[in-house]
Design a protein around this nucleic acid. Structure first.
Lengths: 333, 333
DNA sequence: GTGAAAGCGCTAACAC
DNA sequence: GTGTTAGCGCTTTCAC
């Protein structure tokens, strides 16, 4: 049997209440008794049972984190930001991978509630009606990170994806390619739509009609990037610039192009999105949109702590600044 | 107030025990009552409280995971393996980053115990006496993943690092470089030592005296790899092959070399370690040691479930097979 | 400043 | 097959 608060109380000749007070740093304890209690805690090797505490206090100091895939270079960065701030505020994280699978996501949310998390951070592409329903009737605060629900009704932290994509595309247009190619994943998500809208707007503002042949959809993977590159060079008079929806795709494109003897950026320029660590781990280094993953996670967690503390927040849909970082996969101008 | 098992019992005209039985799938319930209970559970929107359950049953169905850095491309892969198997066995994961900081690690282990995890997966470089002490007196099973303690007394899952490094180095030697360079991190860990030993053994077996100038120590990072490359080309008559302790360092070396006009593998061969996804996301693609990160995590978690179920295991220090995958950063022969 | 006692929501004997 | 009843280890009034 483990040593409990009751054992400590008995050994120290005080009540459980007093032990509880010193454990929880309640000031209403005479220094002498505090010391006595502390000593017997040490002596007995007492370790508070957080589960019992959770049941009694209705707070577990743990928050749930639902993430598409922790092995993704993008999401793991977000998770790091979340955990760091969680730690700062004395919370622990229950982390679960959803693989963007709707049923799994719904089940996971429920499990988190069963485990009595004090809050929930959710990341995922498609937020269905059901998701919104479940999240809005949550018993605890929820925050979305790098995730947008169409209703904009759940607190979230993101960047302005539309504007970012617009700027990236415009940059390529200004560099001389009237209608850059866009390579992205099939996935239907608000974030993905916004990126596409930004791309489209840039094309349109450049007085071009959008050519669907120049929008290549597949997966959000390096391999697909390679494949897309091969597809691109088959195109007749293909545009000499491509904007990829993620850095990983961009890397694939760069290498796919190079494998075919096409020079980046001399022959074709490539623009990425995210600024993951991959962006500097390639030659030429990748020009890309900086999405501050770590900060998004950190801010989402910070936002959540505010909700959990019932502090009032003025803006529940936070939009963090993004920027463009020019490196060597695009031409200098 | 939330709906409890007591509410369900009252509404369904049965006892709490019966509700508990149907919730837990205990067969000793008449189908009719089961149905009745299920209906009122549905009607009231009852959701079992896992914390209360945990207190009563002394099982939380959650395991702790202590990891150096979840944003690392290496560790996040391990984490994914862990979570997948955990999910398969109905466990959730409490994930915490340690940054390989001893105090933080020790504190984290303690927090996990307070939270009453049913088991613990630990990853980290240096396992001090204190670590071993705390881990060995753990109230719950522990398993190390991609981590070795000098005492070999804690269950673990790894590959044979010494042999793997030996094979990699020998491959380079057989390709014609008598004394390849070794680039690694400063960090003192058993894993790191074993890799070095394997390297050393290969050199020795090739009848060479180990030249300390050819052992370059810094950090386990891409940036250090680039730096190491610059250092290497300053060396007089430097060896024409380098073995990197991780793929990330290897990528840095490749690019650092290329930036200086040195061709890989024509001028210098580069050999990595881990076979992270980076290995195929570079040109030339990286020849490397395959360390099955996902499997190590998965097997460690599986091992832990066995301990948690008090099944008996014959080998508590699992050594998974590794292999060499030849790609284009080394010469064909 | 300290203690007594009533829960928190559930499981697990044990009885019937 | 079902109900009763102790806890699980803690927090939190409420007294004193």
């Amino acid at each position: 049997m483990n040593v409990t608060i009751y054992d400590v109380a008995r050994e120290a000749n005080v009540s459980m209440a007093t032990v509880s007070r010193v454990v929880n740093g309640n000031p209403n304890v005479k220094p002498a008794t505090r010391k006595k209690v502390l000593n017997t805690i040490e002596r007995l090797g007492y370790r508070p049972n957080a589960v019992a505490r959770g049941l009694a206090s209705k707070k577990t100091t743990t928050v749930g984190v639902i993430i598409p895939d922790i092995s993704s270079i993008f999401f793991s960065e977000l998770a790091r930001g979340i955990d760091d701030i969680a730690t700062m505020y004395k919370y622990n994280i229950i982390l679960s991978n959803s693989d963007q699978n709707k049923d799994k996501e719904l089940r996971l949310i429920n499990t988190m509630f069963e485990k009595q998390v004090d809050g929930l951070i959710y990341m995922g592409a498609t937020i269905s009606e059901e998701h919104v329903q479940q999240l809005k009737t949550s018993p605890v605060p929820v925050a979305l990170a790098a995730t947008i629900d169409a209703t904009e009704t759940i607190p979230s932290v993101n960047i302005d994806y539309e504007q970012a994509a617009f700027e990236a595309t415009s940059h390529l247009i200004n560099n001389g390619t009237k209608h850059p190619i866009y390579v992205t994943g099939e996935e239907e998500s608000v974030v993905n739509e916004l990126k596409y809208k930004g791309y489209e707007r840039a094309i349109t503002e450049a007085k071009q009609a959008v050519n669907e042949d120049y929008v290549i959809k597949g997966e959000f993977s390096y391999e697909f990037g390679v494949q897309a590159a091969n597809q691109i060079i088959q195109l007749k008079d293909y545009p000499k610039a491509v904007f990829a929806a993620t850095d990983e795709i961009a890397l694939g494109i760069i290498h796919g192009l190079q494998d075919n003897g096409v020079k980046v950026p001399e022959d074709v320029e490539v623009f990425g999105f995210d600024n993951t660590r991959l962006a500097t781990m390639v030659r030429p280094t990748l020009t890309t949109v900086v999405q501050p993953m770590y900060d998004i996670g950190a801010v989402a967690m910070r936002l959540l702590t505010k909700f959990m503390n019932k502090e009032n927040v003025d803006e529940q849909n936070v939009v963090l600044p993004h920027q463009i970082v020019k490196r060597n996969s695009t031409k200098q101008n």
